[in-house]
Nucleic acid binder design. Structure first.
Length: 257
DNA sequence: ATGGTGGTGTCACCA
């Protein structure tokens, strides 16, 4: 089973990119973030023509998540149960016997802002939700844009990034608390693989792409039975060099199921 | 220093 995540930064703009990518990478499931579409405007038909069923949870202008799959996603649940939040950031469904939870974690703004406090609180809610889900589902994948670079080597310039937003110790601790539940960051299973590009996001500003000034903030976490059979996790970095790209690229993992 | 959305602003807001 191949499963991928992609923050598309507007599905309205990026739909041609997504359709083309799916044609050459016919993954079993794809989690999208920052669709920036209301549910009425979700491109159900165009995706169906490419062979994908969709479930989605969107809002105008900001946020918005979706799950695409070649089989009908079952038992969809939007949001974190028990957590009232107008920001559409979480969507779960069962795909081919795997419970898949797509997440768009808050960015956090700057360290001294309300957005940062919201980010840390949001991660605590996600933690408790995932604890429940792990108890219910042996096969669980949690994937998306976490807006956290877990280690210095997941940044282009540790001296610059350490302690800043996306890399601060509380954010890293929040991500680690998810792993401590029994989830594996599948990327790190292949840390010793040579020639692999290390980042998943490059800011549109400052010529970040040209300088390869990126971060690894998009992750695919898997429960133990899935991590054991994970054979690959890579970033499709080439997507960042296309015309009118998202600032994130797809991350794809392969499980021998 | 860029890019996307909503919508016409001295654009603001978000990433």
């Amino acid at each position: 089973m191949q499963i991928a995540t992609w923050n598309v930064n507007s599905l309205n703009v990026r739909l041609p990119h997504v359709l083309a990518w799916l044609e050459t990478n016919p993954v079993d499931a794809l989690a999208l973030q920052e669709t920036k579409l209301t549910d009425e405007k979700f491109p159900v038909d165009a995706l169906a023509e490419t062979g994908y069923r969709s479930v989605f949870s969107g809002q105008p202008t900001y946020n918005g998540v979706a799950l695409l799959a070649r089989t009908e996603p079952a038992d969809p649940v939007a949001g974190i149960p028990g957590f009232e939040d107008p920001q559409k950031r979480v969507l779960a469904a069962t795909i081919d016997g795997v419970r898949v939870i797509g997440v768009y974690c808050p960015n956090g703004g700057d360290l001294d802002t309300d957005k940062y406090a919201y980010k840390l609180d949001w991660f605590a809610r996600l933690h408790d939700y995932l604890a429940d889900e792990l108890a219910r589902h042996e096969r669980l994948i949690v994937l998306g844009d976490y807006n956290v670079a877990p280690r210095p080597e997941d940044t282009c310039d540790p001296e610059k990034w350490e302690g800043r937003i996306l890399c601060s110790p509380p954010e890293r601790a929040a991500l680690q608390s998810l792993l401590d539940l029994g989830l594996t960051d599948t990327w790190r299973l292949f840390d010793d693989r040579e020639g692999r590009r290390r980042f998943t996001w490059w800011d549109y500003r400052n010529g970040s792409w040209a300088r390869n000034a990126g971060l690894r903030i998009d992750h695919i976490l898997a429960s133990e039975p899935l991590a054991r059979v994970c054979g690959e996790c890579t970033a499709h970095v080439g997507e960042r060099g296309r015309k009118r790209p998202s600032d994130h690229v797809p991350v794809i993992a392969d499980f021998a199921l």
